[in-house]
Design a protein around this nucleic acid. Structure first.
Lengths: 264, 264
DNA sequence: CGCAGTATTGACGAAAGTCAATTGCAGTGG
DNA sequence: CCACTGCAATTGACTTTCGTCAATACTGCG
């Protein structure tokens, strides 16, 4: 049948934590939230019914992971792929001073397969920024999935290209944009990414990140991020109360950031 | 035989420009400089004799390209792979203001195959920064090469991972390091990369880049780059006369930059 | 010799970091 | 129900880094 290697490995399911402080992103933990992955992949390449079914079969690998949990160590070699199904995670590098630079956010539907699970050690770490639902797919099962479902493999390829493009856009963001523009750009990027998985609409989405989390991604101090956010509010571009972000003037915000969503 | 699709396409050879203002990087244009590519790939994965022979067969696609030539337009779809064999090129994005951010340097042995030539439009442009020798390999020939030489394909995979890691390191560089540290880090990175293809030794290499070229990569103004370079000279870390860079105190420079070469 | 592109210098201003204190807020335990 | 705790957000004062503008030197080349 479809999933022989999969079922053989599907004993790994673990209920996991239930404490929920910073946004479990959607329903608590009823389903595996695999819809986020499916929507993400379908936004890249059309899938067939059997592909969706194969994704459903990943349900057994899903578990809840509390906030600030290291999912993958720097220097470590990955023996499984990670898929974020709910919550936010980050790729980051640490300096000796202890400060970290976030080099990418992982939102629901994003994954880390180390370029289809090569044996090279990772150059960065991966950690949850909020409580998350994560699918931890063993190497064999993952490769099996790719082998049997070329459309999924293609979508993942495309996703990898998009992530590379996103990282380049971050370079531009850090290299040439002011704090204000930079922050605006990040908010636009997250808007698009969350919209594609149905986690945002009408310019509104749930932003479960700390100002420190934002600062570490934006290359700014958290104090400055605070001031920038206030400026964006004062100018009527956004409203941000608690974790609820509402983009009030999408056009102006994108213009300010020179945001071009095409790369995603 | 080895190269049927290749030979069928090898009418494409063009002598090309000969003017040489800023460093043709090595011998003028006698051989195809394919050694740089071979050395680069071998530094990632051991190759067999037949692999090296297949690389030699690319000679016909090599041509000279003058400085500041656009090799690939942003938004364009790649129908061929590019391999830099001599000289420096850059991946960059432009803002509406006209300013550019360089998101990566391409040195001899580096390539751009758009993730094995997918049909997605490129999110950035590629342009030579110096006079270059470039192999422009048509799609069919390139895929043929990959198909017939799994070791080469593997090496290119690895190279892609290394380039991704480098881009992430640039994010860290721009996000968390001062102008001084940032510049030091770039010089260390280039040192390692050029060393692996035999274009650097004893901490000395040829740096054919303008201070503006550096500034656009470092997210600094060219004026500030100038001052930073002077500081590095004043502190006895480097000597830079014309295009000849000599790293006088490798240890200190790496320490200043917190440079860890492992990601390359 | 003079041009054009680079490199260099000085003076000044704007952007962002640091330090340190204060406020706000949610969960905890009494 | 309320004080207590701990993290997150906010604010103010001051410093540092870096950008901008504009002028001046250099250098290879025609």
């Amino acid at each position: 049948m479809e999933t022989l290697a999969l079922t053989a490995l599907m004993n790994a399911a673990v209920p996991g934590a239930t404490r929920v402080s910073r946004h479990p992103s959607k329903a608590p933990a009823d389903d595996g939230c695999l819809c986020a992955l499916a929507r993400r992949l379908e936004s890249l390449t059309p899938l067939a019914e059997q592909d969706r079914a194969a994704l459903e079969a990943l349900r057994g690998f899903v578990r809840s992971v509390p906030r600030n949990t290291v999912l993958m160590e720097q220097e470590g070699v990955a023996d499984h792929a990670l898929v974020v199904l709910a919550g936010f995670a980050s790729r980051y590098k640490r300096r000796v001073s202890g400060r970290r630079q976030i080099v990418g956010y992982l939102v629901p539907g994003d994954f880390c397969d180390r370029g289809a699970l090569h044996a090279y050690p990772l150059d960065h770490a991966i950690e949850t920024l909020t409580d998350c639902r994560i699918a931890k797919v063993p190497r064999v099962a993952y490769l099996d999935l790719l082998g049997r479902h070329p459309r999924i493999a293609l979508a993942l390829q495309h996703a990898r290209l998009a992530e590379e493009a996103t990282t380049r856009e971050w370079v531009v963001n850090l290299g040439m944009r002011s704090g204000l523009e930079r922050t605006a750009h990040l908010l636009c990027e997250l808007m698009e990414r969350l919209e594609s998985i149905g986690h945002a609409s009408d310019g509104r989405y749930d932003l479960p990140l700390t100002q420190v989390d934002l600062a570490d991604a934006l290359g700014l101090s958290s104090v400055h991020v605070n001031r920038v956010l206030q400026a964006l509010r004062r100018d009527g571009l956004i409203s941000l109360q608690g974790r609820c972000l509402q983009i009030l003037a999408p056009r102006q915000l994108q213009q300010l950031a020179e945001f071009e969503g095409g790369y995603l």
